[in-house]
C-alpha cells in the first residue's frame, strides 16, 4: 500500500479503477478523490498510469462481423421463429408461471410422477433388448417428465446457490437451509431416475451437487462468516453455479427437441 500521506494511502488502486469508471463510489468519495488528485502529484501519477493502461487496452483489436453477418443471422433466426410461433409460447409461459406457484403441491406430485417414471424406466430396462412400441413410448414419456422436473429442480438449485453466495441475512439463510433440505431429497430421486433412464451424465452431475446442498442444509444458524465465505469460495472456484445453469439449459433444450 502506498503511504505518501494519510489521505492518499486510503485511496487504493481499486478505488481509482472505480473512479475511472465513475461507478461504485459514493458522490462524497468521488469528491474526495477529485480533491486528492488535484493536490497530490503521486496519486495523479498513479491515475495517469491507470488511464494509459486502459487506453492501451482500447487499442486491442476488436472482432468485426463480416459483411453478410446480419443477413446470415436473420436467415438462421427466421426458420427457428417460424418453427415456434409466438402465441403458443406466451400461453405456455403463463401456464408455467401458474404451475410454479403451486410449489408445495408440486413436490408431492413430483415424487409420485418420478416414482412412476423410475418404474417405467426399470420395466423397460428389465424386459428385453427390443422393447415394444408401447414400452418405447412410455420410456420417452417418462424421460420428458423427468427432464421437465429436473430442469425445474436445477432452477430451484440455482436460486438456492445464488442466495447462499449473495446474502448474509440470517432470515434468508434460514429459508435457504429449509429449501436445501428439501432439494437434497428430490436431488437423490432425480439422480436415481436419471441413472435408471440411462442418462449417466445427468445422474453424475446431480450426485456432484448433493454435497453442496447438504452443506447449505446443515449450516448452523449461527455459522461464522468464515464458514459462509468457504462455501462462496468453493462455488466461485468450481463454477458450480455456471454448471447448474448449463445443465438446466441442456435439459430444457433436449426436452424441447423431443417435443
Amino acid at each position: 500500500m502506498n503511504t505518501i500521506d494519510n489521505s492518499t494511502s486510503r485511496i487504493s488502486d481499486n478505488e481509482l479503477i472505480l473512479y475511472f469508471y465513475r461507478d461504485g463510489l459514493t458522490p462524497e468519495r468521488m469528491a474526495e478523490i477529485d480533491n486528492a488528485l488535484f493536490a497530490q502529484p503521486e496519486l495523479r501519477q498513479r491515475y495517469t498510469e491507470l488511464q494509459r493502461m486502459l487506453h492501451e487496452i482500447d487499442c486491442a483489436p476488436a472482432f468485426e462481423p463480416d459483411a453478410v453477418f446480419t443477413q446470415r443471422v436473420w436467415q438462421g433466426l427466421a426458420s427457428r421463429i417460424d418453427a415456434e410461433p409466438l402465441p403458443s409460447r406466451t400461453r405456455r409461459s403463463w401456464l408455467a408461471e401458474w404451475i410454479a406457484r403451486l410449489a408445495p403441491a408440486r413436490i408431492i406430485v413430483t415424487v409420485f410422477t418420478l416414482a412412476f417414471a423410475v418404474a417405467i424406466g426399470f420395466y423397460a430396462g428389465r424386459h428385453g433388448t427390443a422393447p415394444s412400441d408401447d414400452a418405447a413410448q412410455a420410456h420417452a414419456a417418462s424421460t420428458r417428465v423427468l427432464d421437465a422436473y429436473v430442469a425445474d429442480h436445477l432452477r430451484a438449485t440455482e436460486g438456492l446457490l445464488l442466495t447462499a453466495v449473495n446474502t448474509d441475512s440470517n432470515e434468508l439463510n434460514a429459508g435457504n437451509r429449509e429449501l436445501a433440505a428439501a432439494l437434497v431429497q428430490s436431488n437423490r430421486l432425480y439422480a436415481l431416475a436419471a441413472a435408471r433412464s440411462g442418462n449417466a451424465r445427468l445422474a453424475d452431475f446431480l450426485r456432484q451437487i448433493e454435497p453442496v446442498l447438504l452443506e447449505v442444509a446443515n449450516q448452523p444458524a449461527d455459522a461464522p462468516i468464515e464458514s459462509r465465505e468457504g462455501l462462496r469460495e468453493y462455488l466461485r472456484k468450481t463454477d458450480l453455479l455456471f454448471q447448474v445453469r448449463a445443465t438446466q439449459a441442456r435439459v430444457d433444450a433436449a426436452n424441447r427437441h423431443r417435443t
Binding site: 500500500m1 491515475y47 463454477d239
Partner: peptide, 20 residues
C-alpha cells in the same frame, strides 16, 4: 471456466505505482 483465478489473492494492495 475453472481457469486461472484459483488461489487468486484478492488483496487490496496497490499495483499502479510498482512502476510508474
Amino acid at each position: 471456466i475453472c481457469g486461472s483465478d484459483l488461489g487468486e489473492s484478492e488483496d487490496e494492495e496497490d499495483f499502479l505505482l510498482s512502476r510508474v
